[in-house]
Nucleic acid binder design. Structure first.
Ligand SMILES: [Mn+2]
Ligand SMILES: [Mn+2]
Ligand SMILES: [Zn+2]
Ligand SMILES: [Zn+2]
Lengths: 138, 138
DNA sequence: ATCCTTATTGCAAAAACTTGCAATAAGGAT
DNA sequence: ATCCTTATTGCAAGTTTTTGCAATAAGGAT
């Protein structure tokens, strides 16, 4: 009974296959404390799964985002990073020193409501990176 | 007196040099109606400036963002695109059909105010891409 | 336990993007 | 007009990310 079993269960119920590659990558994301880049995931995953291709890591991470099990973040540098988080949140990063703050999604609730009202769109689970200057760097 | 002269003037006042490459790329961005990818800019720029390198396009676009003359957008596919717009705005894209709506920044004013109050950060000119489902695709 | 279907992976090649460094040329000084 | 300084470009090489396709193996059926 490993820690990612509920997620693999969810995959199976959605009609997707549970492969060793997906298991390992889910395990890594679940135990990471922050965002991981594809090459970080690859380096870690390769330890338990020699022969794993970096291509597969890219595809699996994007697959997990499509299914809603993982979230992608676009850092200030434009590079992608991934995480699994049960809290819908966003980020605010200081463009000068890189300090990062997490923004609970509840702070965007009224924005979302007004956007949905004015556009007729239904917003999905976004994971936004705001840039700014922290108190020290201003 | 070409159309990008005021921007090249601004560059010069900031202490940067005005090169044919920067002129051409500014001209292209000013006449584009939407976002352009680096390779689109490259293809157009090469017509007036044979010998131009793609590297230079990447560097120039990023340079224009740093100086605040251009804005970068991270589309739903994660690929970068650039534009010059005098209106601070954001985007809302349908994850299903790709339909895209522009969101005037004024709709985020109160969010920005509340984020600045709660975090002590000063937010900068962000150019955010929200994802959702349009009325038809829901 | 074996077979089937086809989703998923490995592998190779391409495309997108970045970096380092020597050659060039913009803009200021003479 | 010529010279100087050094920001900027071209060029080559490297890294990151995407794509196509044949080989593999997950999961359901027999
Ligand atoms: Mn996050
Ligand atoms: Mn835009
Ligand atoms: Zn800071
Ligand atoms: Zn749609």
């Amino acid at each position: 009974m490993s820690c990612e079993s509920d997620l693999t269960q969810e995959l199976r119920e959605l009609g997707f296959r549970v492969t060793p590659q997906r298991r390992v990558i889910l395990h890594i994301l679940l135990h990471a404390n922050g965002h991981l880049t594809p090459s970080e995931v690859f380096a870690l995953a390769q330890e338990s799964l020699p022969g794993l291709m970096e291509t597969t890591v890219y595809r699996t991470l994007e697959f997990l985002v499509q299914t809603g099990l993982a979230q992608a973040a676009f850092g200030s540098n434009g590079k992608r990073a991934y995480e699994i988080s049960d809290e819908h949140h966003h980020h605010l990063i200081c463009r000068q020193c890189g300090k990062e703050i997490e923004i609970p999604h509840v702070q965007l609730d009224s924005l979302y409501a007004s956007l949905e009202a004015s556009t007729q769109f239904k917003l999905v689970h976004n994971h936004i990176t705001f840039l700014g200057l922290c108190a020290e760097c201003q």
